[in-house]
């Protein structure tokens, strides 16, 4: 599983970093960044899906 943030959609809600702080961070403006390059460890998959589900802007894109 890989994850990225659609920068055009992200509004800095930060729901992703609350759901999965190991995976998502914040840039200077408070918009989401992905902290893990490449494949996510299996133990973070569930949290990452939760981050995607909780994003009110539909800005989290998961590739499997």
């Amino acid at each position: 599983m890989r994850v990225r943030v659609d920068e055009a959609s992200c509004q800095g809600q930060q729901m992703c970093s609350i759901a999965a702080p190991e995976v998502f961070g914040s840039d200077e403006l408070g918009h989401a960044t992905v902290l893990i390059v490449g494949d996510l460890p299996v133990e973070l998959h569930a949290k990452t899906r939760r981050a995607q589900a909780n994003c009110p802007e539909d800005a989290i894109i998961i590739e499997e």
């Binding site: 509004q11 800095g12 809600q13 930060q14 729901m15 408070g30 939760r50 589900a53 909780n54 994003c55 009110p56 802007e57």
Partner: peptide, 23 residues
Amino acid sequence: REHNRHVAFGSGIHRCAGSNLAR
């Protein structure tokens, strides 16, 4: 609550700028 896609801070371009401070 696991799934909580709330919009207490709004949605779209006017998402509350102070949301992180409020939290």
